[in-house]
Design a protein around this nucleic acid. Sequence first.
DNA 1: CTGAAAGCGCTTACAG
DNA 2: CTGAAAGCGCTTACAG
Lengths: 343, 343
Amino acid sequence: MKKTSLNDIAKQLGVSKTLVSFVLNGRGKEFRISDEVCRKVLETAKEMNYQPNRIAQGLRTGKTKTIGLIIADIANPFFGKLGREIEKEAARYGYRIIFCSSDENPEKSKQQIAMLQQSQVDGYIISPTIDSEEQIRALLRAHLPVVLIDRYFPDIECSYIVVDNLDAAYRATTHLLARGRKKIANITLNLDLVNMKERTEGYQKALLDNGLQVDEKLIKILPFSHDNTDVNKAILELVGDQNDRKADAILFSTSKIGVMGIECISALGLRIPEDVAVVSFDNVDAYKICVSPVTVIGQPLSEIGKKAVQVLLNEINPSRKNAPKLQQIKLKTEFIVRKSCGA
Amino acid sequence: MKKTSLNDIAKQLGVSKTLVSFVLNGRGKEFRISDEVCRKVLETAKEMNYQPNRIAQGLRTGKTKTIGLIIADIANPFFGKLGREIEKEAARYGYRIIFCSSDENPEKSKQQIAMLQQSQVDGYIISPTIDSEEQIRALLRAHLPVVLIDRYFPDIECSYIVVDNLDAAYRATTHLLARGRKKIANITLNLDLVNMKERTEGYQKALLDNGLQVDEKLIKILPFSHDNTDVNKAILELVGDQNDRKADAILFSTSKIGVMGIECISALGLRIPEDVAVVSFDNVDAYKICVSPVTVIGQPLSEIGKKAVQVLLNEINPSRKNAPKLQQIKLKTEFIVRKSCGA
DNA sequence: CTGAAAGCGCTTACAG
DNA sequence: CTGAAAGCGCTTACAG
């Protein structure tokens, strides 16, 4: 049962494959092919269960209708949900997604980009790792459509969809301050990543604006490859000493850190919010059923995903109307108050 | 800056593209091409930043080195983690993944399979939705490699990697029984899905083996498209009546239901495990930091993922040694006791 | 040892 | 209105 090709249909009907191609691509009218012939072609195609070979199409047209997606880790609920939104929106326009998890590792991301290039994807949606400026630049130099998500590089002229991290962290910290917390800590990731940097800046700005000092000892910077051990260590340093608790609140810059952090806090027998208040970025499910439901900064994942593919599609297909080339979008977050900061 | 092709390298060096192709594919020795020439080709390829066009390769060889993955929802942490393992293992062998979320909807799955076929993927890893037997059969009839995960169709001769659901649910229920629970409920999904059916069967078998009756009222079957409302309703019916609590324990057949369920239980002001004990399938993060850390049935996601691609690769590339064609693998689960069932 | 040629399945100028 | 032909970038018999 070989697959049927354009040629098979053409032969069957005694016409040229040119004609079949036209009809199947809905350009029958355009070339004034008789309704009768059109009907027959469509019918036969259906009968023979014709499935166009997109690979062949891709080779010929240079368009594969495929988007390459690079995020840190699809198993991370934040990226999982984002990936889902991107998949959904892309599907609406007939695009498929090849997904890659970079683990925040520039070496991997480099390989993945090369792989995607070889696969001739039409465009890239990338949550860029640290030290990957040059990779993005190379893509741009080759005039390949790319839109960055979650983070961006201030020095690179590239479309991106991000969130106002500074504002979000500022609000969260202020919220903590308003509940009487004075020793607010921040556990975050390598600050060379813009979004992380902005979050910590927002946190610091809120402290300063409220007449407090920034205490570097209260800022814990984890490596990208952090696991329970790293988080544990940070938590211990922050709230482990019962007689001299360094922090009375913690702002987690990612939900991955936050979930692990809360696990540690519980293991230490500390109560949230009584002993430590807690706020975190990203509204993951875990926070809803947590020991103490967690107050979070929710990101508009659906909007980020949708915008990302729309902006990308505009770059892929610039013929569309009102399609400004470069789009740098910063969306607002939603602050969701639950119980983890007390009243 | 046009992309460089085989031809460009050939011209540059004044040799044929045949030769270049041989060398680049590491078949230089095989065709006894001089080391000198080989070296030069490799060098030039690197200099010109040659990236083979996999689309062209694919058209010619009929192999795209791409796997199509269909799961219910990549945003669901269970599938997210599974997807990640599959991606990782596939990458080891140079395969990429096009992922699709079916939402347990056979219509979507059908379209997605068609799309993947058009994309000429080399094989399929599918977590099949209900009523998709015919879709799988069609793939098999076309001699396309496919391995099913998470579920399978007893009537279809197809490779699969699943888990011993009956045993898992049996153990979980027994565990509850051993802690003195007598009115154990089960909230699950449409039982036409084998894995769900097996889970409920295991639950029932445990009850019967321990001299209890199966009370159909304690089995709540949710539609695939369930949301908070559906779960809420089930929970209310089960434990909502303070004076006549129908259930003293609940086995959640999926973590999606479980997380929502626990949210409802907490909202009702009920305590876990004092008022209701709880066990759930799937060891998701949320359960670790839960009000009462949840006892779970953990699935060997890494092993499922690895096996799935290995079995698939054996089908794609049957030349490999000791590659039995059809492989139906049932893995054991891990029962992780935490606090949600009491002592 | 190396090259010219065919062909994978499409699309699209170009003729007529 | 319709068809023959070229070509996308590869791989691989087939010659020599």
